[in-house]
């Protein structure tokens, strides 16, 4: 491994790490942003390799008192439906309602409810796609993608017009009639965990999809007595600590400066050697 290749490789890695620090700093105010970390390891042939990580530790909670602002306190992600039909996962709990009153994200994606076992229906779960299969009229039966004659009804988190949502720490939504105070159960928000959140593929804007490195989404205990809680009226801030980022920035800058001095020294060596060879020819 030539001197210059190794020094350039190291400088490249360090510049990349600097880029990640800048990305963190610029996202310090993004809701539920998880900071990027870069660490260096020495590979077997003596080169420096950089390893990138997303740090999924908890961000602080900011109170907003907006009834549709939710933050997860603990491990876990909300489950949403992406436009492709695929499941996406996010901790950005800044929700609103569409024209039907259904709970959606700022980008318009449906928030997926947790499936409940109800008395008259059999629950069918295929890769966590929520379906309620009910025995309906023959006229209403349609053939769905599985080739079965079933009427497919998807549960939604719809909050009727004059109802205020009261969202408990276990994610269940109670609709409170604003005039009468009557309560009715609307549904329960799905919160899932992954073995390795760092293995999730980032789609941007706080959305993630699972990959083989992250493991499959798993249920977890959510509630006041559990390690994961859903907090209504709060938003999760980024987990970027400005002080640490600036310290890292200084450290990176020192490393890069040292690396460039090395490159300059190597260049001088080559220059001198070339001159000597040329002169003695």
């Amino acid at each position: 491994m030539s001197l210059s290749h190794q020094a350039l490789g190291a400088a490249n890695n360090q510049m990349n790490a600097l880029g990640k620090l800048v990305e963190n700093i610029s996202n310090a105010n993004s809701i539920a942003y998880k900071k990027e970390e870069v660490s260096f390891v020495e590979t077997l042939n003596g080169q420096v390799a950089s390893v990138e990580n997303k740090d999924f530790s908890q961000g602080a909670l900011k109170r907003t008192d907006d009834l549709l602002d939710l933050a997860i306190d603990g491990q876990g992600f909300f489950e949403v439906e992406l436009p492709s039909g695929q499941r996406g996962y996010t901790r950005v709990g800044r929700f609103k309602q569409n024209s039907d009153g259904e709970l959606i994200t700022q980008e318009g994606y449906r928030v997926i409810p947790q499936i409940e076992q109800t008395q008259n229906a059999t629950r069918s779960v295929i890769e966590r796609k929520p379906l309620i299969i009910s025995s309906g009229d023959a006229a209403n039966l349609s053939v769905n993608e599985l080739g079965l004659n079933l009427k497919v009804v998807e549960p939604k988190l719809t909050i009727p017009a004059n109802f205020n949502p009261d969202i408990k720490e276990d994610g269940s939504i109670i609709g409170v009639d604003s005039s009468t105070g009557d309560k009715s159960t609307i549904g329960k928000i799905s919160v899932v965990v992954f073995n390795n959140p760092n293995g999730l593929e980032s789609l941007g804007k706080g959305y993630f999809i699972p990959s083989k490195d992250s493991g499959a989404p798993q249920d977890t205990e959510v509630g006041s007595n559990s390690m994961t809680k859903v907090k209504q009226g709060y938003l999760e801030l980024s987990n970027v600590n400005m002080a640490t980022q600036f310290m890292e920035l200084t450290k990176m800058r020192d490393l890069i400066t040292a690396q460039f001095k090395v490159l300059k020294a190597i260049d001088k060596i080559y220059e001198n050697v070339n001159y000597t060879i040329a002169r003695s020819a």
């Binding site: 190794q6 020094a7 360090q14 390891v41 020495e42 420096v48 990176m252 090395v262």
Partner: peptide, 17 residues
């Protein structure tokens, strides 16, 4: 020797090096 020193400098940020 110069190669060894530059290797050290390149790896000064590597944990456990």
């Amino acid at each position: 020797m110069i190669e060894a020193i530059t290797n050290n400098i390149a790896n000064s940020g590597t944990s456990g090096y």
